[in-house]
Simulated scan of single mutants.
Amino acid sequence: MSTVRSAGLAEAINATLTDLLEEDPRLLLLGEDIGRLGGVFRVTRGLRERFGEHRVRDALLAESTIVGQAVGMALSGLVPVCEIQFDGFTYPAVNQLVTQAARIGGRWNGQVSPSLVVRIPTAGGFRGIEHHSESNEALFARVPGISVACPSTGEDAAQILRYAVTLGSPVVMYEPIRLYWRRDTPARDPEPARSPTAARIVRRGTDLTVATFGAITLEVLEAAHALAPEVDVEVVDLRWVAPLDMDTVLRSVARTGRLLVVHEGSKDVGIGAEIAASVAERGFDALRGPVHRLAPERRAKPPADFESDYMIGVQEIKDEVLVMTK
């Protein structure tokens, strides 16, 4: 399998935040330990020294106050970019995101368009303990008024972040922890996305489409490369799960006739279920067989020593593809 070497996710996000802070005096960062420490994963390292404590602000250990402050800042014309330390710590901020941030524009009859970004380290693969390895993107993907992005490369993270701060509505960006400092990744086609919120076809194929997003995109690509030329797999990196770019998925399914959806969050009532339902409604005639979903069963993320029994790996993806194409 060929690999490419590129900047890690953390490095790309840090560089993008640096540019955004320089370009827009309204933009500021807010989160637990993001200033003096540079964040748990050092994504904001060096930014406080460069831009000062008023623009790179260490917050209280209370996620509700982080997002609550950010909503007020956005209403006053600032552009806050928040960091939540881990996905599992997001729950205390759900009220502020769902009942406040997502509805402010409508509550003011469209007279205000507050820009607000919430960055969330997410997913497993780094031996995190309880609450540190969750994948809760589906929680916000179903909320009207909130956009949800899940990049798998530093390049996509940078593009998403630049777009998010201009959107005029809240964006939650899930950042795969195990990709923060990873540089060697499976080769992918360089074809650009059609728009800032569009999916990207990262491997062309003819036998089966795999739709995926986030860190597990790398496992999908590794499996696809390993199966070639016996099975020619097309891989669609969704990049965003709200809005979902179903047009790209449907065009791919029209070419291959088969669809497998792979994601790291639990299977029940997840992103895969929504994609499967949409393809059944809009692309049924193109299918040569049923849509399959590959994701962990509905249970809490286990302790680190049992993580491998929970997470979907390359072998499971290969086995599922072979079952669907035999």
Rank of each mutant, 00 (worst) to 15 (best):
L97Y: 03
V233Y: 08
R103N: 13
A276S: 15
E130L: 15
R239A: 09
R50G: 11
G283D: 14
E155L: 14
L294D: 00
G39M: 10
L21E: 05
E53S: 11
W181K: 09
A199P: 05
T212N: 02
A242W: 02
E137K: 13
L139C: 12
G265V: 08
G272S: 12
R57A: 02
G46L: 06
H225V: 10
K326C: 13
V236N: 07
S6I: 12
A304S: 14
A295M: 07
S113D: 04
F213M: 00
V231P: 04
L97E: 02
I129V: 03
E49H: 00
T325L: 15
Q96A: 11
R5F: 07
A224Y: 00
S152R: 03
A295Y: 11
L244W: 05
E134D: 08
I129C: 09
E155R: 13
P92F: 08
V323A: 15
Y163C: 01
S278R: 05
T166C: 05
L29P: 05
V172C: 00
L20H: 04
A223P: 00
R251T: 08
D24I: 02
E49Y: 04
P290G: 10
E137Q: 06
A102H: 14
V261A: 14
L227D: 01
G272K: 13
V253D: 15
T99E: 10
R258T: 13
H54I: 06
L179S: 03
G272I: 08
I271Q: 08
P151K: 08
G214E: 04
A286W: 00
V235D: 09
V56N: 09
A215T: 06
M311I: 05
C150I: 06
E22I: 02
G31V: 09
V79P: 11
T256G: 08
G46P: 07
M73G: 04
T3L: 02
I317L: 09
V94W: 14
S266E: 14
L250K: 06
I129H: 05
L322D: 02
T90A: 05
R298D: 14
T18R: 15
E32Y: 13
P186E: 13
W108M: 10
R127Q: 11
T217A: 07
R183D: 13
L27P: 15
G38C: 00
V314I: 15
S266P: 00
